[in-house]
């Protein structure tokens, strides 16, 4: 036998750990991520501790003046609660409503394609168009109120836009199709023979759903909730257009933009933006934690 180590060069040892020229394909993607995401983000963090003189004078706290302002100024701070009050129910509704719809649309029937495309249509509409449509359709003079009046269901037009409700409508119309698509794909990943097996074992439809589908769907539900929450959390155009921008729908993104575009206080704008990210990540982490807890709970209960 010749020297056993003869072919094990440094290059080979690197390749063994997964480092070889193929990795160069990652470089363009990394450049984009670092130059357009990591760098601006760190730059933004740097900005938050360079408050304007006016901010320091008004709120004190030295270089942390922006943070002091964020927590002390109720006009800004309350926007966290206002955002949550919109985003959490909207995301929850979208996910919970998607499950039965996806379950029903799972089976084959005539017109399924049409129905699915109808449900997915709003994705192409975008928030701004939805807002414009809501203003016309659900406004005081709109078809919806008109029809309800004619039917005698109400005595005077309902206030459905330019308030909390309007933004909620908009979030459901844009968020629901997204949640539906995701849940559908998770559902289709569950082997239908599992359910058939449960059926032969005598499980009714609720038992099948509760004991088979739901545990298998739980991780997908959490992921869908997170993604729809992210979508709803960053609500901006609809909060301004169909909401009550100075009142019940004064969301964080509006606050951040006010500082950026109207007050030209980039430092404060970055502060609000970062806090927004922080709050959102807190919710995401909480949901992920809940998911692992829940997941263990169901398996434990069965075993």
């Amino acid at each position: 036998m010749t020297d056993g180590r003869a072919t094990a060069s440094l290059r080979h040892r690197l390749a063994e750990r997964g480092i070889d020229p193929t990795l160069l394909l990652l470089v363009p993607g990394l450049v984009v991520a670092v130059a357009l995401f990591v760098y601006p983000f760190s730059y933004g963090i740097g900005l938050t501790v360079q408050p304007t003189a006016a901010m320091q004078e008004q709120w004190g706290g030295g270089i942390l003046a922006n943070y002091v302002a964020f927590f002390r100024d109720p006009f800004v701070f309350d926007s966290i609660g206002l955002t949550m009050r919109l985003a959490l129910p909207a995301a929850l509704f979208n996910v919970l409503a998607s499950v039965p719809v996806a379950m029903v649309l799972r089976h084959r029937f005539r017109g399924k394609r049409l129905l699915t495309s109808l449900l997915v249509l709003p994705i192409t509409l975008g928030t701004v168009l939805t807002a414009q449509g809501l203003l016309i359709f659900a406004g005081r003079q709109g078809w919806l109120n008109r029809a309800l009046l004619e039917l005698g269901l109400i005595d005077e037009p309902l206030q459905l836009v330019n308030n909390y409700l309007g933004v909620m409508f908009s979030l459901v119309i844009t968020g629901f199709p997204f949640a539906f698509l995701l849940i559908s794909s998770y559902l289709s990943g569950i082997d239908p023979s599992l359910e058939r097996a449960a059926k032969t074992l005598g499980a009714g439809w609720w038992q099948r759903f509760r004991r088979i589908i739901l545990p298998l769907l739980a991780p997908g539900l959490a992921t869908t909730f997170i993604l729809t929450f992210v979508l709803a959390f960053s609500v901006f155009p609809s909060a301004r257009l169909v909401g009550d921008a100075m009142g019940s729908t004064r969301v964080m993104s509006l606050m951040a933009f006010r500082a950026f575009g109207e007050q030209n206080d980039y430092a404060m704008a970055s502060t609000i933006a970062l806090m927004m990210g922080a709050v959102e990540l807190l919710v995401v982490v909480a949901v992920l934690g809940l998911r692992s807890l829940l997941y263990r709970g169901t398996t434990g209960g069965k075993g």
Binding site: T2, G4, T7, A8
Partner: peptide, 16 residues
């Protein structure tokens, strides 16, 4: 890739 030894065809190494 090999970590040890060599492969030859008619005495000519091909494992590289």
């Amino acid at each position: 890739p090999l970590t040890h030894g060599e492969i030859l065809i008619d005495g000519r190494r091909i494992d590289t």
